[in-house]
Design a protein around this nucleic acid. Structure first.
Lengths: 145, 145
DNA sequence: ATAATTGCAAACTGTTTGCAGCACG
DNA sequence: CGTGCTGCAAACAGTTTGCAATTAT
């Protein structure tokens, strides 16, 4: 199950934020992409909503993205070439991403770096570990042919 | 053992590239930081060499960094906040990074994501895996106190 | 009502590019 | 010498900001 527009809007109300027209439109598009398991760029989001609502300002898109990241609904993935892409998720779930290098379909991975490996590294280096990121790249079933 | 300036310069000659004054100066600074196990930003590199050689152009720094990445001597690490940092390494070695969130000391980690975990993920998702990135964050022994 | 949010335009940051001159080999 | 590399300045892309007008509550 992917996230729904209702869930995000409720979270906004709970947080004392206003559910405005531009935000509704952006949420709609983001949720649709989440449904298709696609990540997206800010540029793509802006261009897409532009069709229905040409009056939405670029800065609103930036501000809204930032807001959703703070609320925990959006994950920022930075690619090797420096581009940033976003992906909707249910908040609070620790997970990693497997992205198709061809079509940008994204799969959430529940498996994590094993604790004994982390412990081993901590012991070896003397560091205390506080966070980690694991990003996987490959080709999805449809793109393998 | 960390990388030396000689190694990089030899690699440049082998590749048919010119060992020019600006490149020498940049290599020197990069190697020094590698020695201290510190990563750095392009901005920091420019400001630092500026002291000795104020005539070096900003674009030369960008071009040189890009060059060293292609030669495999430099690794680009993108942080969660969007900043990009660089770290010298001996080329061709597959490894990951553990960075101190406080002082930006970087340790290279030889251990990698276990193959059976990767296999498990590939099987579960149907993806063929081609690449991965693992980045660890924590606090180094000196910064823990 | 009133405070949060918006669109706009302008500012800013980080990076790239075109080009005439310089210097490495 | 020839051409690869450089500094400069200007262009560029992506993002942020200040502000008056708008709009959700």
């Amino acid at each position: 199950m992917t996230i729904t527009a209702q869930q995000i809007q409720e979270a906004m109300e709970t947080a004392g934020l206003r559910v405005t027209r531009p935000r509704q439109i952006l949420v709609e598009q983001i949720v649709q992409w989440a449904h298709e398991n696609r990540d997206f760029t800010i540029e793509a989001l802006w261009h897409t909503v532009q069709k229905d609502a040409p009056w939405i300002g670029r800065s609103t898109v930036f501000r809204t993205i930032e807001l959703f990241i703070e609320l925990g609904f959006l994950d920022r993935i930075s690619f090797a070439d420096g581009t940033e892409r976003y992906h909707a998720m249910r908040p609070g779930s620790h997970h990693h991403h497997l992205t198709c290098e061809q079509c940008h379909r994204v799969v959430e991975i529940a498996s994590c770096i094993p604790n004994d490996l982390l412990d081993h590294i901590a012991q070896e280096t003397g560091f205390s570990l506080s966070d980690h990121r694991m990003e996987l790249f490959g080709h999805c079933p449809q793109c393998q042919k």
